[in-house]
């Protein structure tokens, strides 16, 4: 499926990170409905060939929409390597493992294991939360499937044996700028021990805090490549909302001021500059950047150009 994937690496993303180059990934959100052309077209036009892989969100913020697996497959069909995001909120261990096998046979190799926002945050707050596994459990399940077994036991108490086993490039998430970072690092350590091979972070706007976080990560011997999360700051209101309501994300006042002072026609230009500067500032401490442009996919080429 991928041109750089080899016997050693299961995906281009894995190969790129192993190659020591600074790697970019992008992200698209599936539509609420079946009209997939727009987001596929955007990805093809602005992300293809520019990022190593494209994350596909999984029922993001618990708002019901097209699933990540289907759109990841469509991306792969169009020659883009997907990062299949998987949350543990909506499926039990049977469905998660089954979808992992499904993803593998469809050619999907990168999987990002996430807990997922609580259903109360979304548009079906009466839904039953599943959380049969947590993100550590999901990573363990992937590692188990790779070993040719699943999480179940046969009648003799031995793990069930698979007919052919998958191989993934397994990722996880971490929130580096939360006010109490030690619990995040402890959990990250467990995720890596459970099989995580790469890390994509929650949005970071404070390079100094990120530097400190990365220092602590390396001090604890966590060596998985880390891609810093860059969420495009589209408006001042968005920044204020994140500061008041999004856990672990802090946009400094100076950054908000800069955007506020920009002339209306220049705002997008300034947003791009902010993203690129953040990447440049944090490049020395990490292995890549995960760009979340929230629909402004057309800005990705310019962010990458300015950041490199």
């Amino acid at each position: 499926m991928t041109n750089q994937a080899s016997d050693r690496y299961v995906s281009s993303l894995q190969a790129a990170l192993a190659g020591g180059q600074f790697v970019f990934t992008g992200e698209i959100g599936p539509p609420k409905g079946v009209s997939v052309e727009k987001c596929l077209h955007q990805a093809e036009q602005y992300l293809k060939g520019r990022v190593a892989a494209v994350n596909v969100t999984d029922i993001q913020t618990a708002v019901m929409r097209l699933g990540s697996l289907a759109l990841s497959h469509l991306l792969a069909e169009r020659g883009m390597e997907p990062v299949f995001q998987m949350v543990t909120r909506d499926r039990n261990r049977l469905a998660l493992q089954s979808d992992l096998l499904g993803a593998y046979v469809l050619g999907i190799r990168n999987v990002l294991a996430l807990t997922g926002d609580h259903v109360s945050m979304g548009d079906h707050p009466q839904a039953k939360c599943v959380y049969d596994l947590d993100s550590v459990g999901l990573l363990s399940a992937m590692t188990m499937l790779e070993s040719g077994h699943d999480l179940g036991l046969d009648s003799k108490g031995a793990p069930n044996v698979l007919e052919g086993s998958p191989k993934f490039f397994k990722g996880c998430c971490v929130t580096p700028c939360t006010e109490e970072v030690a619990p995040q690092i402890i959990k990250l350590e467990k995720k890596v021990a459970a099989g995580a091979q790469f890390v994509q972070t929650q949005a970071v706007y404070e390079p100094e805090a990120f530097d400190k976080f990365m220092g602590e990560v390396r001090r604890r011997g966590i060596n998985a490549p880390v891609m810093v999360g860059i969420v495009m700051l589209k408006t001042v209101a968005m920044g204020r909302y994140m500061n008041s309501s999004v856990p672990g994300v802090k946009v400094p006042e100076a950054t908000l001021d800069r955007l506020a002072k920009a002339a209306k026609d220049d705002r997008q230009k300034v947003s791009i500059e902010i993203c690129a500067e953040l990447v440049r500032a944090m490049k020395p401490f990490c292995q890549g950047a995960h760009l979340m442009t929230l629909g402004w996919d057309h800005c990705v080429p310019e962010i990458i150009r300015q950041a490199t």
Binding site: R89, T115, H118, T175, V246, G248
Partner: peptide, 14 residues
């Protein structure tokens, strides 16, 4: 709220 067994998720604030 998610009955997680391996530690906090990213949704904790203050």
């Amino acid at each position: 709220a998610k009955s997680l067994v391996n530690g906090t998720c990213g949704g904790t604030k203050d």
